[in-house]
């Protein structure tokens, strides 16, 4: 019960759809929307009764893009999402991923830009697909995250060992930008000064100040 969305609408998306195609065989009960511009309405329709939403390609801080002009997922349609979201979209962990996590869901994405070089496409594909590959093999999200961070570090070293320093820097960037938000990995970064103070004071509970406040009042 998985929805895989991999739009194609520019040069970059023609690379990433190949990576998305290579995870299809790992997934059962799969619905695929790919290879063209994708609308928000068709994604929302296809999300019904799904347990996992996989999205390959462009994103920004506030959502995931099905075309140059439309976000197919953002904070206004989180209620349509299944329990888990997996994406390689740039920047998506910054605001959107936090909102997804705060709604009680698991989010896998990137806090910064996802980079790749064409001289090392297999390595970047391996890294981008690592999490979902491990999940499909029965690993937990947490195990998949730890293994993927190790993989990213190993791949970055392998690239520099073979003289591909530009690719190695890009791989290191991706590795440090990868985020998992779940019950054991709360977001640690925020743009909000007050939230930053709350996180420093209360740790992950700083994301639930209203709940903390209510409990303190009741006590």
């Amino acid at each position: 019960m998985t929805l895989l969305v991999a739009p194609v609408f520019d040069n970059v998306t023609t690379y990433c759809i190949v990576w998305a195609d290579n995870i299809k065989s790992l997934l059962t009960n799969l619905t695929v929307i790919e290879g063209r511009k994708v609308t928000r309405a068709e994604v929302e329709d296809a999300l019904v009764d799904k347990k996992l939403f996989i999205f390959y390609d462009h994103g920004n801080e506030t959502g995931l893009f099905g075309s140059n002009t439309e976000q197919v997922a953002n904070s206004n349609n989180i209620d349509k999402l299944p329990l888990s979201v997996y994406t390689m979209a740039c920047l998506s962990a910054k605001i959107y991923g936090v909102d997804v996590w705060r709604s009680g869901r698991v989010f896998w994405g990137y806090y910064d830009v996802f980079s790749f070089t064409t001289d090392s496409l297999p390595e970047f594909e391996q890294f981008a697909n690592s999490g979902i590959t491990l999940i499909s093999q029965g690993k937990s999200w947490s195990e998949a995250y730890d293994s993927t961070i190790s993989l990213g570090n190993d791949l970055a070293k392998g690239l520099s060992d073979s003289g591909k320093y530009i690719a190695s820097v890009a791989m290191s960037n991706n590795t440090s930008a990868l985020r998992l938000y779940d019950s054991t990995h709360a977001p640690k970064e925020t743009q909000c000064t007050f939230r930053r103070i709350a996180l420093a004071l209360f740790g992950a509970k700083g994301w639930n100040l209203r709940r903390l406040g209510k409990r303190a009042t009741l006590d």
Partner: peptide, 12 residues
């Protein structure tokens, strides 16, 4: 060769 960074695809 190409690199994708900063939402831009550019040659080396």
């Amino acid at each position: 060769n190409k690199i994708f960074i900063c939402n831009r695809l550019m040659t080396y």
